[in-house]
């Protein structure tokens, strides 16, 4: 009875939240609704969903977007793997051991957080051109892989909180620094590693500006880039086709979210707080 009363008292609160939720979801609703309209359905009713749902929009959009899934997998897979390995190694060394130059290295690594990639857009572009990497996947992979400061900060905080004893006993047992990383650091860091990994996937999936500068070859373009190229491109697609491409660009992230909801949220929170 009291539970029911309590629920009743919360109705205004839930209603207010609903008022915020409706406009929050409006763009997603519009995207899904229009993605199922053919030209005439759109002409008659551009907003609300219409039947039959026109899947041919997705066929047209997929013809343009299909190669991007592979490109994103290669680019993000490589760079995230590199970041996770080398950022965890670096933070493990910096957080667990004191050695000459440790502090200098720590600040050297973290100072990069004050250099947002786009303020070095011009010189980074010149560097990629001079390395002969323009219009290759490396042009995107390498700068992504080098963006490790955020991962290092989160790993560093994590490794610093581990108890001293396990490392001391490992050291007494004669374990070297690398062995301690492999047998102690790495297994303990696995949960935080997946959080960081998911956050990095999300960040890189969203990136648009840098790929649009260095990947003009349509076969190499990433999801976000190809979406804009297709949507605003020369053969301007029907609204339904453009929206279908938007939906296609989200599907992998939707799946990622569904299979790792808690990790996803933990990663986002850690990412934002630390980055």
């Amino acid at each position: 009875m009291s539970r029911l009363n309590r629920l009743r008292r919360e109705i205004p609160l839930q209603l207010v939240l609903l008022i915020f939720a409706v406009p929050t979801f409006f763009p997603v609703f519009v995207m899904l609704s229009i993605s199922g309209k053919d030209f005439f359905q759109y002409g008659q009713q551009p907003l609300l969903p219409t039947l039959p749902f026109n899947f041919s929009n997705y066929e047209v959009a997929w013809a343009s977007m299909s190669s991007t899934y592979f490109n994103n997998t290669v680019i993000i897979g490589t760079s995230v793997a590199v970041i996770l390995i080398f950022a965890s190694l670096t933070s493990f060394a910096l957080a667990r051991f004191s050695f000459p130059g440790r502090k200098v290295l720590f600040y050297f690594v973290l100072a990069v957080l004050a250099i947002p990639p786009t303020v070095i857009l011009v010189p980074l572009f010149m560097l990629i051109v001079n390395m002969g990497l323009l219009n290759t996947r490396w042009a995107v992979i390498l700068p992504y892989a080098a963006s490790q400061s955020f991962a290092i900060l989160v790993f560093y905080t994590f490794f610093s909180t581990l108890s001293k004893e396990i490392f001391e006993s490992a050291q007494i047992d004669g374990a070297g620094f690398f062995q301690m990383y492999i047998h102690l650091g790495l297994p303990l860091a696995r949960p935080i590693m997946s959080s960081i990994g998911v956050f990095l996937i999300w960040i890189q999936w969203n990136d648009y500006i840098w790929p649009s500068l260095v990947l003009s070859n349509p076969e190499l373009q990433t999801v976000a880039l190809k979406l804009v190229v297709f949507y605003l491109g020369r053969g301007i697609p029907e609204p339904g086709q453009g929206m279908a491409a938007s939906v296609i660009s989200s599907i992998p992230l939707v799946i990622l979210f569904l299979v790792s909801m808690r990790t996803f949220i933990a990663g986002l929170t850690a990412g934002a707080v630390k980055g």
């Binding site: 080398f86 950022a87 190694l89 670096t90 493990f92 060394a93 910096l94 051991f97 050695f99 130059g101 290295l105 050297f108 690594v109 990069v112 250099i115 303020v119 070095i120 011009v122 010189p123 980074l124 010149m126 560097l127 390498l142 700068p143 892989a145 080098a146 963006s147 490790q148 400061s149 290092i152 620094f177 690398f178 990383y181």
Partner: peptide, 23 residues
Amino acid sequence: LYLMVLPTVVMLLIFFYYPAING
């Protein structure tokens, strides 16, 4: 330990410090 830090330092030098100064 220096070896563990080295790859990151090299990557930061090439893709952050060098472009920042060059810019």
